[in-house]
């Protein structure tokens, strides 16, 4: 695996505000690397240094061996960028924008195919200002990919998209990765990171809190398992409460909620089986990336939490 992006000791201040304190990470070729963190953690400033839009106060950034500032002309040929809230001229039409941007690159992608893939073909002659939020977002993704980049930096990829469009976009991004493009994804949306990212860096207050795969991070955050089921026969709570793996047993109507450590599920099921009780509608809530996020950053993923409900729940029939 070759390192495609290497960031070491990045530091950036705006006036007296420290936007990025000390950030280091490296992105391998062909992976989808997520940069997660609360608002104002320094995610966008970090990727802006990678894109060459900002000059770091300290530290080094290298993209495909290029210096984002010094080797600007070469970098822009190989790095596709989606900015957080970039717009187009109001009266510029979708096809014109794609045609125009493709003319900037040495070996551009087929913009008509891209327009098709992103579901914008029927909007080809629609001016930018008449597009919906989701369509603008899809155009922005298409423009990031129109230069056939080797690396794509996507900031807030699916913000403003409806669930269907979001899933379509994820599929598209996976397809792009399968073609060998390395992707850096800035997000505060946990489901997106869990679904797409090979590895994520959690950034908090301008520092990297941790870098790992989403699954490993979620596992790390697990301190408790929550097991919920409808027993086929009633039983005494003590039956389960006495187990060393179990910390609490609660009855809610005919639903039983048991919390315990990582081994609690096995212990509970075998005790129930021994007593000829079947756990119906069994559901286990495990740790999620969001739990890891909250634990590691010590605060809420303010905007992410609204979408994050129901994540990491393994439905076991």
């Amino acid at each position: 695996m070759t390192v495609v992006i290497d960031v070491q000791g990045l530091h950036k201040e705006y006036g007296t505000t420290v936007a990025v304190d000390d950030v280091s990470f490296s992105v391998q070729e062909g992976e989808i690397f997520g940069i997660l963190g609360p608002n104002g953690a320094g995610k966008t400033t970090t990727v802006e240094c990678v894109e060459g839009l900002r000059v770091p106060d300290r530290g080094s950034v290298s993209v495909l061996g290029l210096d984002p500032r010094r080797d600007r002309a070469e970098l822009t040929q190989v790095l596709g960028v989606q900015l957080q809230d970039s717009q187009m001229p109001e009266r510029l039409k979708v096809a014109e924008a794609l045609d125009l941007y493709s003319s900037f690159y040495r070996s551009p992608a087929d913009w008509r195919a891209l327009m098709e893939q992103l579901g914008l073909a029927d909007k080809a002659t629609t001016p930018f200002k008449k597009l919906s939020g989701g369509q603008k977002q899809r155009l922005s993704i298409a423009l990031a990919l129109v230069g056939n980049p080797r690396v794509a930096v996507l900031d807030e990829l699916t913000t403003g998209l409806d669930p269907q469009a979001r899933r379509d976009t994820w599929e598209l991004i996976e397809g792009v990765r399968d073609r060998g493009v390395t992707i850096v994804l800035v997000s505060h949306f946990m489901e997106e990171a869990e679904r797409l990212c090979d590895r994520v860096a959690l950034i908090d207050s301008g520092r990297v809190a941790v870098i790992d795969s989403p699954a490993a991070l979620a596992e790390r955050a697990v301190s408790e398992q929550r097991i919920q089921f409808r027993p086929t026969a009633s039983f005494d709570d003590a039956l389960l409460a006495s187990l060393p793996e179990v910390t609490s047993v609660i009855h809610r109507g005919d639903v039983v909620v048991v919390t315990g450590n990582a081994d609690a599920l096995n212990a509970v099921i075998s005790v129930l089986a021994r007593n000829q009780i079947v756990a119906r509608q069994l559901r286990v809530d495990q740790g999620s990336l969001e739990d890891a996020f909250l634990e590691l950053t010590g605060r809420g993923a303010r905007n992410g939490s609204a979408h994050g409900d129901g994540q990491g729940k393994d439905e076991l029939r």
Binding site: L53, Q77, L83, S86, Y101, F104, Y105, R106
Partner: peptide, 17 residues
Amino acid sequence: NYRERGILRRLETTPAG
């Protein structure tokens, strides 16, 4: 207008120059 709406910035990330 292009600067206010981030169009110049977006163009900065392309080889347009």
